[in-house]
């Protein structure tokens, strides 16, 4: 078990390294002069040359990449006009636009993204698992047909459509809710939840459809297994079979998938954050892309990659622990 975990971890690190290299190659070697971008269109040629020297763009590529990795692991000192700016350990560089440290920008944006992702996950697990179980246990009834229709609609609706429709319904037409503006949890917990309600719902409805399908098929599969048949033969009541025995097996893939999705949410909530104006990582990424602020883009994509890779590893471990049939390699 421990060997498996270590191997899986090493593999995750490898994937991250490849990701960093690919990102670095794409962004810093892309057409367009990084120094020119950093300096802005009004800079004189001499200033651009000076900045190029400062950024180390005259070094060979592998040296630059090495410095980039070094910065992430050990920090980095930047010389500015007034003195040096120390950039502590996970140093991802400086924004071209504002000069802020990328790691600071990310740290500032993380709470909003985490609020959105965690709240939405609670909702989508509740809705998704509930719907899935109901439609698995009421097989062949009208309830199942309705729920199947509901999940199909959910799967086919992109989150930004669900989001706009929710805004239209609750804010414009019914006027039950104010147009959401993000309030940090530390400022006012009640306002925080109230304002995040619609974004949570929008994300959760889309995700719940996926979870409902998975829960349903997983439950049906488990109920068809031999040991469940044995319980039935012994006369154990159906409710008890489901609660005590089937649920555990059926929910393993669901839990593994939610680990994966929570990881993706740190990058996948771009659309929701942009639509609802939530100042999270996704919104920052979109803004930085539009401003061509490459260090910020690279930093955020790396963090999102990290989240996904870690989530993948966690999902694999969850599987291995919960389901002994999975072969550890």
């Amino acid at each position: 078990m421990a060997r498996f975990a270590v191997r899986r971890l090493l593999q995750a690190v490898l994937v991250l390294l490849v990701l960093a290299a690919v990102l670095y190659a794409v962004f810093y070697l892309a057409p367009g002069d990084a120094a020119r971008l950093a300096c802005g269109p009004k800079c004189s040629t001499a200033t651009v040359a000076q900045i190029r020297e400062q950024m180390g763009l005259n070094d060979p590529v592998y040296v630059q990449f090495w410095h980039f990795l070094q910065g992430i692991l050990a920090g980095h000192d930047y010389s500015t006009g007034a003195g040096t700016l120390h950039c502590a350990a996970p140093c991802l560089g400086q924004s071209y636009r504002t000069g802020d440290l990328v790691s600071h920008i990310i740290a500032e944006r993380l709470p909003a993204t985490a609020s959105l992702a965690l709240g939405a996950m609670v909702l989508w697990l509740a809705i998704g698992i509930g719907t899935g179980l109901l439609s698995a246990l009421r097989r062949g009834t009208i309830v199942e047909r309705l729920l199947t229709g509901f999940t199909l609609v959910g799967v086919a609706t992109p989150v930004f459509i669900t989001g706009i429709l929710l805004l239209l319904l609750f804010c414009s037409w019914l006027q039950w809710l104010p147009y959401p503006t993000y309030v940090p949890l530390t400022d006012d917990p009640q306002q925080w939840a109230w304002n995040l309600l619609l974004p949570w719902l929008a994300l959760a409805l889309v995700e719940a459809a996926k979870y409902a399908r998975l829960t349903r098929s997983s439950m049906l599969e488990t109920l068809a297994e031999d040991h469940i048949r044995t319980f039935r033969a012994y006369g154990v009541r159906e409710g008890a079979i489901v609660r005590r025995h089937a649920l555990r097996g059926a929910l393993t893939p669901v839990i593994a998938l939610s680990a994966l999705d929570l990881g993706t949410m740190f990058g996948g909530a771009l659309l929701t954050e942009t639509l609802f104006g939530i100042p999270g990582l996704g919104q920052q990424l979109v803004q930085s892309v539009q401003l061509k602020d490459l260090p910020v883009v690279v930093g955020i994509v790396l963090v999102m990659g990290l989240a996904v890779v870690v989530a993948n590893a966690v999902a694999d471990v969850v599987y291995a622990v919960a389901d002994r049939r999975v072969v550890l390699t």
């Binding site: 994937v15 990701l19 990102l23 794409v26 962004f27 892309a30 057409p31 367009g32 993706t264 990058g267 996948g268 771009l270 659309l271 990424l285 979109v286 930085s288 892309v289 061509k292 490459l294 883009v297 690279v298 994509v301 999102m304 990659g305 996904v308 890779v309 993948n312």
Partner: peptide, 16 residues
Amino acid sequence: TLPALVFAIALLAVVP
């Protein structure tokens, strides 16, 4: 493994 949308966005940022 890559979140496709994120990577697409990042790629789109560098193309003229």
